Simulated assay, not measured.
Amino acid sequence: MSEARVEHLTTSGVFTLDGGSWEVDNNVWLVGDDEEVVVVDAPHDAEAIIEAVGGRRVVAVLCTHGHNDHVNAAPAVADATGAPILLHPDDRVLWDMTHPDRAPDGDLADGDSIRVAGADLIVLHTPGHAPGAVCLYAPVLSVLFSGDTLFQGGPGATGRSYSDFPTIVDSIRTRLLALPEETVVNTGHGDSTTIGAEAPHLQEWLDRGH
């Protein structure tokens, strides 16, 4: 049985895209035990994330997508901990806007599994909010880390470059709503929800897209 647990902190900063900027609060999720952790998204405040890690070994910094408010602290966290930064290659175009001189260390691909503290995080490619957006599913913990793909109340935003509403709804319908209803959804911003709480609203989202 896994001893892995989920830890949470919030960081604040600015999201920039398409010439606009917005003040945002971002969730950072740590998954692991007293010895090792993975960091799910590294936004805004590298020092706070490193402090939350403590002296533990960081297996990887996992980027749910390449928007600056999810990756801007990733190189500093990686450099401080020796961890690799992993990103789906379809989001390099977004990553490079923030870090043109620093490539990710490896790719996240659909079906990949990252193991930490006896728990497996399974990569689900869920494009729509961004072309390389991924969610990370930990079956043993009954937890999904959804980035900006699924929130309490619906899909992530698709009004900006490299995003598409029908694609995000299809990703949620085919990849996420197939998960057990009791799965806790830990999001990139705001409060957590469950698959069961969001599933009944699928038709509303589909209707909104027409």
Rank of each mutant, 00 (worst) to 15 (best):
G66E: 05
P75H: 05
P127Y: 10
T174D: 13
V93Y: 11
G66T: 03
I195M: 06
Q203S: 14
D69P: 07
D34T: 09
R115N: 08
V24F: 02
M97S: 00
V14H: 08
V123G: 05
Y137M: 06
L124V: 04
D101C: 09
F151L: 06
G209Q: 15
A74K: 04
P43F: 09
D91A: 02
L144K: 08
R57A: 12
R160I: 14
H67A: 13
G128L: 05
P180Q: 12
E47A: 07
T11R: 04
I114T: 03
Y162V: 06
D25P: 01
D91Q: 11
G132P: 07
V185F: 03
D112W: 10
V6Q: 10
C135G: 01
T126K: 08
S21D: 09
P84C: 14
H125Y: 14
G190H: 04
F151W: 13
N26C: 14
T194S: 12
R56V: 13
D105M: 03
V134D: 06
L176A: 01
H201P: 00
I50F: 01
V185M: 06
A60N: 10
D79N: 10
L62P: 10
D110W: 04
E36V: 02
A178H: 01
P200I: 04
V93I: 13
H8T: 12
L176G: 01
D79A: 07
T16S: 15
G190T: 07
H70W: 02
D45G: 01
E3P: 02
T16K: 09
P180R: 12
H201F: 15
S161Q: 13
T81M: 12
V28A: 12
P100H: 05
Y137I: 13
A178T: 06
W95R: 05
G147A: 09
I122G: 00
V77W: 07
G196C: 04
D148M: 03
L86N: 08
R208V: 02
R102V: 07
T16Y: 01
V59D: 02
A52S: 10
E7F: 06
D79I: 05
H88V: 02
A130G: 14
L94T: 03
G111L: 06
G159M: 15
N186T: 00
Y137A: 08
G82S: 15
C135L: 04
E35A: 11
S171Q: 09
L177P: 02
